[in-house]
Design a protein around this nucleic acid. Structure first.
Lengths: 222, 222, 222, 222
DNA sequence: TATGAATGAGCTTTCATTCAT
DNA sequence: TATGAATGAAAGCTCATTCAT
């Protein structure tokens, strides 16, 4: 049902897979997202998910044959919510419309955009990130379909900006890695050490981070 | 058993807590570390841990009243292996001995040092990081005792280097955050997307990252 | 619904109970017969029966209050198909029309007739035989109503043939038992050990069996 | 663990497989035998078996991974109790020691012996017979290993007795079939229609049956 | 009347924990 | 002290039955 091919077509075609899922199914996935995020996949009870979704426990299994299928079922929403708009909005904007804007504004906007998306779908992202460590199959679609498509696009974006003289002459892949590491690291530390790493306002915070990213922390007495 | 006070004294005093734990206890914790890292806390079976430790399942419960106590027991080794040397070796070196070296070398050395430690204790770090999400009390000692002590020290280090003109005039806390985010982000992405984020050699890799950190990715043909 | 009285009247009166059952009811019983025969009563799912009958699962319960009622409902067809013709056709023929034929031909014909009936209604017979072991109440109508009526008739037939000198002077009940045992035993072994107990053609096979039954296996070179 | 090969060696070699099963295992199998015989495999609850065996439900699964394994586990006792002595005692007696006795005495003794064994192990035999209908794999060892070995021996016995002039010149296989059908048929009808088919004393009853088997029911006025 | 989604009691199975040895 | 068989509460899952449509 959720073969890689389908997944791919969902992301890059116009089809709307949401319509293939009943409201019930979405209710269950929403509840599962919440419970999994709270207690982890193994730590969650199907009874809790049922309670959260206000349905009988047996009903879950009409829509998802096993508990594991619930976890796999989370992938689709993640893909849809997270990577589809990424492909069609942000990246395109970056590479076309906004080329005129200064690089730091573009980067800031991307980071704000991505961080906001992460924050809005925190439970979903959290669960997939963590559980994919123990169920590596979960990442396969991401690794095989999304990443190989996405990373070259980003690489190309950085390469062009190096060409244009907006960025230093570095390995574009290294830049990609650094940017994504920053976003990921911020996300992780944010949830692990909220006391130390709370970020008040997105905009200002991101501006500063992007500033560091572009200009570095060095170069004091310059 | 593992009260915060004890923990604190372990980290900042000279006592050697290892001696208070029998070899058996360490065997069990080692086995638990390995199994937890493989399958997660909830996904692990005490029987598997016993097998890994080459002891009978019942024996575990002579040393750790419950399975949860095993998880809590992991904290101690983490603290000892990870933060104690951090407090007494690296940081001191950073702030005293090495002040003469250029800032980028110092930072690179710290990052190499920290990343190596993470890598060497990957299973332990991984388990604590993940499980602390679902059992926040795990982090309490870290958050309450370690972080408030550690972060000011680091802040101060950056502040001094700003003073000395080695770094730009930024909020030291922001720098701390960025450095730690980079380390954390790299660690996470490395384990999630090994295909894209494989790092060949520590030294060179870190040099580049630190270069970006200090000089930024911007400022090309400028 | 299927009281013993009704059952009795069905078998010995002229009423046609089929008309009291709707086509739907028969469809369901047919489907149940098939599924029960395949997986046994407890091993069968009402959903499978519904699918086999091409109706919705809920519809079953409009016609049969419980799953158990389905099993009980199978008795009626069995009685009708199996014992009613036995009473009115075969036995009468045996005892009247065919009295002129030699005893071995009569017996052979009965056995062929009965075996054919068993074979044609194998799923039904199989289910009733097996399930009556675990639900003895199923057999009550057979034991209380049919057997006491049928066996004396058969006994009488054998008694008459002893009288006529067609059979040895044995306890007629013993003969009845032996004949029925042979039929039952053949049926059972046939389905349990098809490799060893395959019977090619009815006619020839039965002739041989009846030969053994009448003349015995003994008395070789005597 | 219970491969066909092992099973075969158990039956034809001197090894004593009982010793490989702990008392606990036998307790559980005994309880399962009883409960399965009462309610059938699918109709039985592992909780009932546990109660019958006076153990905790979980204990069953230490010895038998699944409920199905319990059913398969019944095969071994059946083989041991039923077919092993058959191979080494009765058959040998039949073919050697007792050759001097008249054929009807030999046959009577076999039937008494076999019927007694069936009666003593009724629950076990019943369960295997019925469940093998729905789980044909159960019969495989019987069909592949036992039957092909046993039936030729019996065939040969009858062939010899035909040669000796003790039996009529019939296909030995047909005689085998008739004898086994009679035994099986009697067993089945006995449990289905106890009212009609109760046999008082083994000895006399069997004498009569064997008489019919050898001399037939025919030949009255002869 | 027929449907089939929803139910929830009850099933098999797992596993942390206990305790007699 | 170490063991591992035994425990039983609780898990995931099934399926006969109900009921709004």
């Amino acid at each position: 049902m959720t073969s890689e091919k389908e997944l791919y077509s969902y992301l890059f075609d116009e089809s709307l897979p949401e319509e293939e899922m009943s409201k019930r199914q979405w209710d269950i996935l929403d509840a599962a997202t919440k419970i999994f995020a709270e207690k982890g996949y193994e730590g969650s009870r199907t009874s809790d998910i049922a309670k959260e979704a206000n349905i009988a426990e047996g009903t879950i299994f009409r829509y998802f044959k096993t508990k594991k299928d619930l976890l796999i079922g989370l992938l689709m929403p993640l893909m849809i919510k997270f990577f589809k708009p990424l492909m069609f909005n942000s990246i395109e904007k970056i590479m076309n419309n906004e080329k005129n804007e200064p690089i730091n504004v573009v980067l800031k906007n991307i980071m704000i955009d991505r961080m906001a998306l992460v924050r809005k779908n925190k439970p979903l992202v959290k669960t997939i990130m963590i559980e994919s460590i123990y169920h590596p199959e979960l990442l396969e679609p991401l690794q095989k379909e999304i990443a190989p498509k996405l990373i070259p696009i980003i690489d190309k974006f950085f390469a062009e900006n190096i060409e244009l003289g907006n960025l230093r002459e570095l390995d574009p892949r290294l830049i990609t890695r650094s940017v994504m590491s920053l976003i990921a690291g911020f996300s992780v530390l944010n949830s692990l050490f909220p006391e130390v790493f709370t970020t008040e306002g997105d905009e200002k915070e991101m501006e500063k981070i992007v500033d560091i990213l572009i200009n570095g922390i060095g170069g004091g007495k310059k």
